[in-house]
Simulated scan of single mutants.
Amino acid sequence: MERAIPYDTASLVTSRQGAAPQRARGHAKLVVRRRDAQSVISDLAMSGSAKLLFPRRSTSSLDAVMLNTAGGITGGDRFSYAATVEEGASVTLTTQAAERIYRASPGAPGYVRNHLEVAERATLHWLPQETILFDASALDRELSVTLAPGGRLLACECLIFGRKAMGEDVRQVYLRDRMDLRQNGKLVFSDRLRLDGDAQAQLDLAAVAGGARAMASVLIARPGASALIETLRQMLPECAGASAITEDLVFLRIVAPDGFMLRETLVPVLQELADGPIPKTWMI
Score class of each variant (00 low, 15 high):
residue 265 T to R: 01
residue 4 A to L: 10
residue 280 K to A: 13
residue 21 P to M: 02
residue 117 E to S: 12
residue 9 T to W: 02
residue 191 D to C: 06
residue 68 N to G: 02
residue 144 S to A: 15
residue 269 V to N: 08
residue 126 W to Q: 01
residue 23 R to Y: 03
residue 152 R to P: 06
residue 10 A to I: 13
residue 163 R to L: 13
residue 284 I to K: 07
residue 52 L to I: 06
residue 212 A to E: 07
residue 252 L to S: 05
residue 259 G to P: 11
residue 169 D to L: 10
residue 73 I to T: 15
residue 105 S to D: 05
residue 259 G to S: 14
residue 16 R to T: 01
residue 18 G to T: 00
residue 102 Y to I: 00
residue 142 E to P: 02
residue 57 R to E: 10
residue 95 T to V: 10
residue 143 L to N: 12
residue 163 R to W: 15
residue 78 R to A: 14
residue 204 D to K: 04
residue 225 A to S: 07
residue 258 D to A: 04
residue 260 F to K: 03
residue 60 S to R: 15
residue 108 A to T: 06
residue 85 V to R: 07
residue 195 L to V: 14
residue 193 L to W: 13
residue 48 G to T: 07
residue 160 I to A: 05
residue 143 L to D: 01
residue 268 P to A: 01
residue 278 I to G: 12
residue 219 L to T: 07
residue 41 I to A: 01
residue 83 A to G: 07
residue 52 L to S: 05
residue 67 L to S: 11
residue 199 A to C: 08
residue 161 F to G: 04
residue 247 E to Q: 15
residue 141 R to C: 12
residue 15 S to C: 04
residue 52 L to R: 01
residue 135 D to A: 03
residue 32 V to I: 11
residue 31 V to S: 15
residue 35 R to D: 14
residue 98 A to E: 02
residue 221 A to E: 03
residue 102 Y to M: 01
residue 107 G to M: 01
residue 168 E to A: 04
residue 15 S to H: 15
residue 173 V to W: 02
residue 140 D to I: 03
residue 204 D to A: 14
residue 276 G to L: 03
residue 153 L to C: 14
residue 45 A to K: 02
residue 274 A to N: 15
residue 210 G to D: 11
residue 151 G to L: 05
residue 48 G to L: 00
residue 284 I to W: 11
residue 175 L to P: 09
residue 13 V to W: 03
residue 73 I to D: 08
residue 66 M to R: 08
residue 260 F to W: 11
residue 134 F to H: 15
residue 30 L to K: 07
residue 51 K to S: 11
